[in-house]
Simulated scan of single mutants.
Amino acid sequence: MRAIWKGAVSFGLVSVPVKLYSATESHDVSFRQVHAKDGGRIKYQRVCSIDGEEVAYADIAKGYETEDGEMVILSDDDMAELPSTSSREIAVEKFVPSNQIDPMLFEKSYYLEPEKSGAKPYALLRQALQDADRMAVVTVALRQRTSVAVLRVRDDVIVLQTMMWPDEIRRPDFSIETGEVKDAEVKMANMLVETLAGDFDAEEFEDDYAGAVEALVKAKVEGGEVKRTPTSTKSSGEVVDLLAALQRSVDAAKTARGETGAEAGEEAGEEEPAKKAPAKKTAAKKSTTKKTPAKKAPAKKAPAKKTAAKKSTTKKAAAKKAS
């Protein structure tokens, strides 16, 4: 994992330097909007709803729509004047009983890892939260906005969970009319609850929808129901993993078919010229080899002359010595 934020947890006079890691990731199945005819991806243009013209990124501003439908344009200077903070402090406001916080308020979870210098106070805070069975309500600045969050312990790791603001929780605007509920019905409902009672284990549940989608896609790939587009684009997250798995499925399907069909024929056709080319080069080499002796025939006499010259020189040297 890669740390996305660094700061310190402060409670009282104690400060615990920590790193923040995202504790969750989505494994939801992603689909692309494509042209059903050829599989090409659908592109969207940024078009103004008033004049119908495409708008460049440089001309796009932030707008706030009022309740009566009027649009207020906010410039970069306006946004710069808004209250923001870059504090690296996770400030503990109070410790509250765990059962007092509605789970609906929880938004996103992060793991807190202590720096080496903060390992001991980290362990003390973790133990205090466990012994008291309480959560620490904190304020923290993430993405330049102050948020309310809680600290709790999960598997010996302190987890920070950001919370929604109270006015972000919608209230139901409907009423439920149950009619008369008989004692016998309540008793039977209680018996049903006891029959299905048990401990929660997250491993008992799995995303059967994602598995079914992968099986469906694999079956279509093996059946040849694939649109081949001229270009491929990079994706991110689980889509990349899925495409890699599908590519392996394609390779396995080709192997199982023995590479029969149009594609196998094309590959075989490409190999034919490659085999003929070396044959032409070989013939050319043979032709050159036959001509070489005729051209080098005069060259063989040259060594003979040089040898004779050397012998003559040797005889003259010997004669001088003799005299």
Results as ranks from 00 to 15, higher is better:
51 D>W: 01
76 D>P: 04
61 A>W: 03
51 D>H: 06
119 A>T: 10
75 S>E: 04
105 L>K: 06
91 A>N: 10
33 Q>K: 13
95 F>P: 05
82 L>Q: 09
63 G>M: 03
41 R>Y: 03
101 I>P: 00
129 L>Q: 03
75 S>G: 09
34 V>A: 08
132 A>V: 00
109 S>L: 05
104 M>T: 07
86 S>A: 14
48 C>T: 00
66 T>K: 12
128 A>M: 13
57 Y>E: 01
79 M>N: 05
125 L>E: 01
95 F>E: 01
63 G>L: 00
84 S>T: 05
110 Y>A: 06
38 D>M: 12
39 G>Y: 04
47 V>M: 02
105 L>A: 08
75 S>T: 14
126 R>Y: 03
77 D>P: 02
29 V>M: 13
131 D>T: 14
97 P>T: 12
33 Q>E: 08
133 D>V: 09
24 T>S: 15
33 Q>F: 14
104 M>L: 14
106 F>K: 10
44 Y>D: 00
92 V>E: 08
64 Y>G: 10
87 S>A: 13
93 E>F: 09
41 R>K: 10
83 P>N: 07
98 S>N: 05
97 P>Q: 13
110 Y>D: 06
103 P>A: 13
47 V>Y: 02
51 D>L: 00
40 G>Y: 04
49 S>W: 04
138 V>G: 04
57 Y>R: 00
63 G>T: 03
102 D>Y: 06
100 Q>H: 06
102 D>F: 09
82 L>V: 10
58 A>K: 12
54 E>R: 11
97 P>H: 15
75 S>F: 03
111 Y>V: 04
27 H>K: 14
44 Y>E: 03
123 A>Q: 11
41 R>Q: 10
80 A>I: 00
140 V>S: 07
81 E>M: 15
95 F>M: 12
38 D>N: 15
94 K>I: 07
78 D>K: 07
96 V>T: 12
125 L>P: 00
133 D>C: 09
130 Q>Y: 06
67 E>T: 10
91 A>L: 15
111 Y>E: 04
31 F>I: 10
106 F>Q: 08
47 V>C: 00
112 L>P: 03
91 A>G: 07
94 K>M: 14
66 T>F: 12
76 D>V: 05
118 G>K: 11
124 L>P: 02
35 H>E: 09
120 K>C: 03
70 E>F: 15
102 D>G: 09
111 Y>L: 07
131 D>I: 15
99 N>M: 11
99 N>K: 12
101 I>L: 14
76 D>Y: 01
60 I>M: 12
133 D>E: 14
124 L>D: 04
87 S>D: 11
33 Q>S: 14
101 I>A: 05
121 P>I: 15
106 F>M: 13
47 V>D: 02
72 V>K: 08
97 P>F: 15
54 E>H: 05
112 L>F: 07
27 H>S: 14
66 T>W: 01
132 A>C: 02
127 Q>N: 14
119 A>C: 07
49 S>V: 01
57 Y>P: 02
72 V>T: 08
138 V>W: 01
120 K>P: 00
48 C>F: 03
84 S>Q: 09
61 A>M: 11
31 F>W: 05
33 Q>V: 13
52 G>H: 04
68 D>I: 06
29 V>D: 04
131 D>V: 15
31 F>H: 11
130 Q>L: 15
29 V>P: 08
115 E>F: 11
112 L>W: 06
69 G>K: 05
139 T>W: 02
100 Q>A: 10
